[in-house]
């Protein structure tokens, strides 16, 4: 009975553990909002390249969490220095990798979009 309660509490607490927070120290950036451009907003061409940007947070042993998994970092990675360009038709995804019950967790914001000229 006591073991059942402990397992139940652990399963409830598991999403908290995997949410990218550390019990001792947390310093993470998470995505909140991004109203992206659409093809009508830019000078879209058929041969505009498709690019991907990724930004990640990591956590270790449930104790420490760090990283920059926000939209700004993912966009900067996708643009790769091409600040005069703009992303449009953007899709954003969340990629989570967790090993050994979340002892190490990596949560990444992945954005995929086309490069266009404003």
């Amino acid at each position: 009975m006591l073991l059942d309660i402990k397992i139940k509490n652990f399963l409830i607490a598991l999403p908290v553990m995997l949410s990218g927070c550390g019990l001792i120290y947390t310093n993470v950036r998470t995505p909140y909002g991004y109203h992206t451009a659409t093809p009508i907003d830019v000078k879209a061409q058929d041969d505009d390249s498709l690019v991907t940007g990724e930004s990640c947070n990591k956590s270790l042993l449930y104790l420490v969490a760090w990283g920059n998994g926000g939209y700004a970092a993912a966009v900067e990675h996708a643009l790769s220095g091409r600040q005069n360009m703009i992303l449009y038709d953007v899709r954003s995804d969340l990629k989570v990798q967790a090993y050994l019950f979340g002892l190490y967790t990596k949560t990444c914001t992945v954005i995929t979009g086309r490069l266009g000229r404003p």
Binding site: L23, I24, V28, P31, Y32, G70, Y71, V75, I86
Partner: peptide
């Protein structure tokens, strides 16, 4: 325009938390 909004969380021992909203 073309704004990205992120949440920057710093937490120490679960006792102190700072949540910053960053707009780029």
């Amino acid at each position: 325009y073309d704004a990205q909004i992120d949440k920057h969380t710093i937490q120490v021992l679960g006792i102190f938390t700072r949540l910053c909203i960053e707009v780029t």
